[in-house]
Design a protein around this nucleic acid. Structure first.
Lengths: 235, 235
DNA sequence: TTGACTCATTTAGGAGTCCTAAATAGCATC
DNA sequence: GATGCTATTTAGGACTCCTAAATGAGTCAA
């Protein structure tokens, strides 16, 4: 009789990181598909809808073309195309910046604002799927997402984000309350990982050194749960 | 003197699920951008590259056009376009299915296989970002991702995936070892959440009832991390 | 103050994506 | 052998996305 060695999952599988990447790619596909379905009824395309949302987040200052291109992850000519389509639809107005006369200042028209708000609702299908996670799981997921995004930012794959961890008002791990160890110096209140923002309007970038120090302090000491992951009265 | 009430993050923020969705959308943007850069040098477009990878995963049986369209998340005409481009480049061969003469059978040519392998490497930038997470964090993230994808599948937003949790060989939570509580009846070996697959070649879909039962059994008793990660108030 | 540069954006041109609607072809059945 | 169903392709049009080259506004130096 011959003993067969048990199958070795660790050796035979892709790494966890690879499978996580696969999963993110799958979600990315749905996001693309649904973006079409959500935007089409409003007579805009996904890219255009995304540009509208970007401008909505930047009101009232507006954005330069260049900034829109970075936010969309496309080249300037492509962004110019999309903006031209929006201008011709009367959703965006293209002005010249007062101080820098070669830069354009893109802002939403009233109609553009209305449409941007309507269109911003499309990803509720994703919201529902995320909602099937337990609250504690969502919080851990958010924390991991922040790390991944920061990693992409560090590598230059994504422009700097208006996240807490990049903000000069961020004071990580300075309170004893394990649920709210951080502090936001802007609103002067403590908060926890579950409140971390990815797109805060009040965000003001910290200096490189400051951001690095905050980052180390934040990621160094993960919040501890009052009870393990699965615990807690589930909704 | 008036006491100002402290800022209420819970009330003033978007929900965790909303912010998670935002984060996933951001990753989706990078993925799109990088897909272009990765695919372009090989003289294919992102959609074409994705079709190649899909076909690679389905070898040697091949896929029907319909299946490619679903996997790509596009309509049949769009898939037909992309496939036509690949055929004219000599990367895919389009045959007729023997028994059903109205269906096509798409398979990779030798060159197509070579290119598919080269192109499959592109997301290493994402791999690196995911790699900045601690191992335990990666495992929890993967588990959450599986739940989200299954949620999307349930809602019909994504076609059924070749995941362990959909598989008739999956036996969740039948072992005592907390690191490997599940069992794969195909390779006859125990495994843990960190080994969960999203795209298993051996996967064979379970019946609806069986899948539902497995799902409940799996999600009911989550593995505990060796080290607690994060809790937060259970809202 | 006139070139030479640089910067921000646009134009040009071309392949490809993506849609809806309509056309073709194989099969099914009655 | 008409009728319908299924799988795919064609047709047509708007938009995406790229690279390369062209404008047009500021800047700077001689």
């Amino acid at each position: 009789m011959i003993e067969t060695p048990p199958f070795d999952f660790e050796a035979a599988s892709q790494t966890v990181a690879e499978r996580v990447s696969t999963g993110l790619a799958k979600i990315s596909v749905v996001l693309k598909t649904r973006a079409w379905r959500g935007a089409a009824p409003e007579r805009v395309t996904p890219t255009q809808a995304q540009a509208l949302m970007l401008l909505r987040g930047a009101a009232p200052r507006g954005l330069r073309l260049d900034e829109v291109a970075k936010g969309l992850g496309v080249t300037a000519p492509t962004a110019s195309d999309a903006v031209a389509a929006l201008v011709s639809k009367g959703l965006v107005s293209r002005g010249r910046s007062a101080e820098n006369h070669r830069a354009v200042a893109l802002t939403l028209t009233t109609e553009g604002e209305a449409l941007a708000s309507r269109v911003a609702d499309w990803p509720d299908f994703l919201l529902r799927a995320v909602g099937t996670l337990e609250p504690a799981e969502q919080a851990v997921f958010l924390r991991a997402l922040v790390k991944i995004i920061r990693g992409l930012q560090e590598a230059g794959d994504i422009p700097p984000q208006r996240m807490c961890v990049n903000c000069r008002y961020f004071r990580p791990n300075i309170h004893d309350d394990p649920a709210k160890p951080h502090h936001c110096a802007f609103v002067d209140a403590p908060f926890g990982d579950r409140h971390l923002r990815l797109d805060c309007l009040e965000q003001d970038p910290a200096s490189v050194e400051e951001a690095q120090a905050n980052w180390n302090r934040w990621r160094g000491s993960p919040e501890l749960p009052d009870r393990p992951l699965d615990g807690g009265p589930t909704a």
